[in-house]
Each structure stands twice: as structure tokens, then as C-alpha cells.
Write a protein that binds this DNA or RNA. Structure first.
Lengths: 123, 123
DNA sequence: AGTTGTGTATATAAACACTATATACAATAT
DNA sequence: ATATTGTATATAGTGTTTATATACACAACT
């Protein structure tokens, strides 16, 4: 369970924490039931305030990645992969719809759009 | 040339002005060379500061909708379709990049993405 | 030339949002 | 009981956004 933060990064600390934990969940490095460092411990390790780790964990909980229990600790939540996927798919569809609307406005063909996407995908 | 502002709106004043002028340009109500109210006159009419009208006009100029000449006034610019296209292309690229990032996270392949896009495009 | 009407630049104020914090409170484990 | 866990409240520091006053620069018109 290694979390690093960069003070020079423009990303806020709580976000750096969130991203790293999310990544570990998505990669399978962390699995359902796994214990996370306590807010206080993590705060001590990173030399930041408890409130900041609290914020990171709180948002991760809202997004369904972890859950916390007073007196016990914080844990990786049931991997509701389907749910996460669903959310991302919805987001993708929304953006894709906008992209297509914009493309049609300026007469960008489906073929051109696909070619562009291929280039971006492979970068 | 009627511009109205709402003080209760959450939209900033300079943006309300911008949007209304843009709309008139895009609808054809205002055409190349048409004279806009002077910054001072508009400020007086709307009971706001010149700096605010200045900001609206300034941004409209940056976006290519109008141009201003010291001592003369502000005018509707040549309708530069190319420029508008360029902007849309940039917007498309940004969204497409996000779409691809999201797709990779959940393992959506380029092929699947293309198929999806085809469906959305043809709807 | 002088006056008036244009747009412009600088420095500032006020409101708001965001990030991070200290400190005290509440529940659980031992 | 005591230590360890998460939680709630109130606050400080920072940066961004919105709007302003005031003085400057250029052009048109007597």
C-alpha cells in the first residue's frame, strides 16, 4: 500500500490520493475487503492533515470504491465493476454524442472521424 | 440592437452581453460591418461600467465575432467560417481524447468504440 | 486647435470557490 | 480504561472570477 504525493504537482493532495487508490482498485492490486491505511496513519506518513485524507476517502466512498466504519477502518468495497463500467459507458456515450453533433455541424464524415480516433487511440 | 441583462441571472454580465451578440451574429440579425453600440453608450444604457462592456467586446474580438477601432467604434467582423470550423475541430479533439482515455480504463477496444460511434452517427 | 466621442491600460475591490487545516466529538477494539 | 478508528465544525490561506474607477491614446468633427 504505497501512496506518494508530490507537493509540486498542481493536482490537489486529496486528488492524488484518490487517483492512486482508484488505479490500484482498477488494476486489481487492491481487492474487496482489503484494508486501507487509517486516515490518521496515512496523514502521518504523508505529513498532511487528517482532514485531507478524510476528504480523499470520503469521496472514494461516495464513488463506491471504498467504505469506512468508525473504530474499524476503511476498506475496499465490493468490486462493483459492472457499476463502474456502466458509469464510464454513460460518460463515453454523452461525449461521443457531442462529438458527433459537432462533427455533423461542420460536415466531418464518419470515416474521417474514425480515422482521427484511430490516431488518437494509438498515441 | 437591443441588449438586455438580468441582474438575478447567475451568468456574469459580460457573458450575457457576449451571448446575445453572438446569437445575433449567428442568426444573421447582425451582419459584417454593422455598428455596435459604443462601449460607453452600452455601459450607460445598462447602468454598468465601461470595463464590463469592454471585457465583453474584447472577448468577442478574440473569438473573431467583432473588431474595434479606437476613435471609431466596434463592428461586426467578417463571418469567418474557417475559424469557426477550427474551433469546433479543437473541441472535438478534446472530447475525443477524453472518450479514449475513458475507454482504455475499462478496456473498451478501438473496434468496439468505432462500432458504437457508427450507431450513434447514424441515429 | 479644441472638443467630443471612440477604444485601451492599470491598479484595485469584492465576492466566491477551492484546498488544507486544528481541534473536539463519536464509535469500536483491546 | 485506553488507544485507535472515523466524523463534524469552524477557520485560514490561496487563487480565480467578476466588476469597478480613473487616467490614457487615438480619431472625427467642428
Amino acid at each position: 500500500m504505497h501512496i506518494l504525493i508530490s507537493n509540486s504537482s498542481k493536482e490537489p493532495i486529496y486528488n492524488q490520493i484518490k487517483d492512486q487508490i482508484k488505479k490500484m482498485v482498477l488494476s486489481g492490486e487492491l481487492k474487496e475487503g482489503d484494508v486501507l491505511p487509517s486516515m490518521r496513519q496515512l496523514a502521518k506518513d504523508l505529513h498532511i492533515s487528517v482532514i485531507t485524507t478524510k476528504r480523499a476517502y470520503e469521496e472514494l466512498e461516495k464513488e463506491g470504491y471504498i467504505y469506512s466504519i468508525i473504530g474499524k477502518g476503511s476498506f475496499i468495497a465490493e468490486q462493483n465493476m459492472e457499476m463502474i463500467k456502466e458509469k464510464k459507458l454513460t460518460a463515453i456515450e454523452e461525449k461521443l454524442t457531442e462529438v458527433i453533433a459537432n462533427s455533423k455541424e461542420i460536415g466531418l464524415s464518419l470515416k474521417e472521424l474514425k480515422e482521427w480516433m484511430t490516431i488518437l487511440y494509438e498515441e
